[in-house]
Each structure stands twice: as C-alpha cells, then as structure tokens.
C-alpha cells in the first residue's frame, strides 16, 4: 500500500467579513472566525502504480488533500501515510521520493533557461551525474524538450513551460506524483501530449499518481479509479465507469428514422438532446429506458436504435450541478466552505 489516508481532516480558521465598508471596518476591529472544513473525514488507500483522479468542483478540498499528502500542511486530525512516512514530518528521505506539480505555480527560474533550474534541482536532490543524464535524456525524448532547454523560461509559451515544469519535477525519479491541474490553460493538443506523457511515465516507472483536473478528459483518459470530493467530504471512491452509472439518472437513446417524421412529437418520449435530419438523440430516465425504446419502436418508423451511457464528462458535470442546486435549496451557501481562490 503506497498511500493510506484515514479520517483526514483539515480545517482552516477564516475570518468572516460582512460586505461593504462598514463590514470591513467591523472586521478590522474585531474579527469573527469560522472553521472552514476544507477536508472533512476523508479516508482512502492507493496501491503502488495506480493512477487515481480527484474529482470535485472548485474549493472541494482536492488541492488541500494533495498539500497534506506532500507535507505542506499539517492535518487538523486523522492521519496520512505515504510510502511508510508521515508527510507532515517532511523527512528528507520522504521528500526526495515524491513530487508536487501545480499547474498554476512555477518553480523554474523566469530569467534563466530551464536547464539551469534542472541543474540546481540535481544538486538539491543529490542526483548522481550519470543518473541525471539518463533521466534528462528520457524526459527530453518523452516531452520533446530539446529545442526548449536552452531558451530563457520567460520566452517559452505556456505549454512549453508546463513541459519543462514537469521535467523539473521528475528529475529525481519520484515514486509518487501529486499533479494538481497539470494541464490547466493548455490547448487541446498540448493537453493530449501531457496526458500521453503521464501514462507513459506511469507505465515505465510504476509510479503512483494522484491527479486533479478541471478537464474531465484528463481524468477519463488517465484514471480508471476516481475519488469524488465535494465540500471536503468524500462522495465516491471507485471505478470511473461505475460512477457514471451510479450518478447518471439517464440513458441515451440514439435513433435513426426510415422516413422524415411528421405529426409525431419526440418530446413525448424523453428529453431531446439533438435532432439532425432523420437522426435524434434522447435522454430517458434510466429505469424507463427499455419501456420507452419499445414504445418508440412500435409507434415510430425506426431504422436503427441504440441505447448508450451518456458521455461521462457530461454526467459528472451534471452531477455536481445538481448537488449544488440541492444544497442551495436546503439553504446552505456555497461560499462558507472550501478553500479561497
């Protein structure tokens, strides 16, 4: 077992401010503090070599969990063990076996070519020369770094910089990777490249990887297992596709008609997502799927029909939207929990 997290909690004390000038003055004089439960009783185990995706809306506690695991934050209660170490002790042996990549923060020296930062990291991590050379060669090949290494970082594009950031973070061949939004702000081609690289790295080195991303495509492409966190609480831990089935209340019926419809209203059968010529897609409640399909076959001139799971990205996005709506109806606000931006 590589990562063991038991009943992990991380609360922040945040001062609360009423809006407006008077509120600001009040909070300047006397502050009201409230506990924000960024992570609230989260437990999970991850085996060596697994890639696990953390899903959840902004401020759900994903980043906070990663920060606790990489030793940046002390847990309020509960425990985390990674590779047999307690992260918050920040032991040298531990820190040289892990890495933390944050899509929105950079460690590369802005004014120097990336290779210079690599050399500094080589010294910090005490990487032997031969190993440094072979690792760098490998990363250069996988990430196509050759033309980038000797350019000042400030002259690189966002995507090029991210590739160099990844390389800088992996020079010491960490066994455990914490990737926080590694593809944020990148174009689709670059996202795909980074994804391919992560898969490749995982296969070559049997590295354990936890990934958070706003892009569902990252998660569907990389992770078989996902952990869903919302408002600090863990909602789901398991297979990605099983999650879709569990939270998707609908199935997708795709039909092709043998002739143009007239007189029949498709809305009677379900929520129409798309119609184009003689084709249409409908969302139908999961339990009613077979009944509706049978009725359509009987009543409409159908050439072909398929029943599918709706696209997973759509399902999960919807799932979060509905959860947020349900909370709003119960009168809980979204802002008093989660991390600040």
């Amino acid at each position: 077992m590589t990562i063991q997290v038991e009943h992990l909690c991380k609360y922040y004390q945040v001062h609360q401010k009423e809006p407006g000038l008077i509120g600001s003055v009040k909070s300047f004089v006397k502050r009201k503090y409230a506990d924000v439960k960024a992570v609230d009783d989260v437990s999970f185990h991850i085996d060596a070599g697994e890639i696990v995706g953390f899903l959840g809306p902004n401020g759900a506690g994903k980043t906070t969990t990663l920060k606790v695991l990489s030793g940046l934050l002390y847990p309020t209660s509960g425990s985390a063990r990674v590779l047999g170490f307690t992260p918050s002790e920040r032991r040298k042996e531990y820190l040289s076996k892990i890495t933390l990549v944050m899509g929105q923060k950079q460690q590369l020296n802005w004014d120097l070519p990336a290779i210079e930062t690599f050399l500094v990291n080589a010294a910090i991590y005490e990487i032997p020369d031969a190993q440094f050379k072979s690792t760098l060669d490998e990363l250069t090949e996988l990430l196509e770094l050759k033309p980038l290494l000797n350019k000042q970082v400030r002259k690189l594009s966002l995507g090029e910089r991210m590739k160099c950031e990844l390389a800088a973070a992996l020079l010491h061949r960490p066994q455990v990777l914490f990737l926080d939004e590694p593809t944020i702000g990148l174009d689709v081609t670059m996202q795909t490249k980074i994804r391919q690289f992560i898969t490749e790295y995982n296969e070559r080195h049997r590295a354990t990887i936890i990934l958070t991303s706003h892009y569902m495509a990252d998660v569907t492409a990389l992770c078989r297992r996902v952990i869903v966190i919302d408002h600090g609480r863990m909602l789901y831990d398991g297979d990605l596709h099983a999650l879709a089935e569990k939270i998707a209340p609908h199935k997708l019926i795709r039909v092709e008609f043998s002739e143009t419809l007239n007189g029949h209203r498709l809305e009677e059968y379900g929520e129409v997502v798309k119609t184009r010529g003689q084709r249409a897609e409908l969302l139908v409640p999961r339990d009613a799927t077979s009944g509706v399909a049978a009725r359509m076959l009987a009543e409409l001139p159908i050439a072909d029909v398929t029943i599918e799971e709706p696209p997973i990205e759509q399902v999960i996005t919807r799932g979060f939207e509905e959860a947020a709506r349900a909370r709003a109806e119960r009168g809980e606000s979204d802002e008093d929990e989660g991390e600040e931006d």
Partner: peptide
Amino acid sequence: DGTFDFVLTKPVNA
C-alpha cells in the same frame, strides 16, 4: 503567491 510550496517540498532544510 504560493511558490513557497516549492521550498517546502525540497529535501533540504527549508
């Protein structure tokens, strides 16, 4: 700006 995270995750005395 949060880059202090990179100081703390290095295996050298912070």
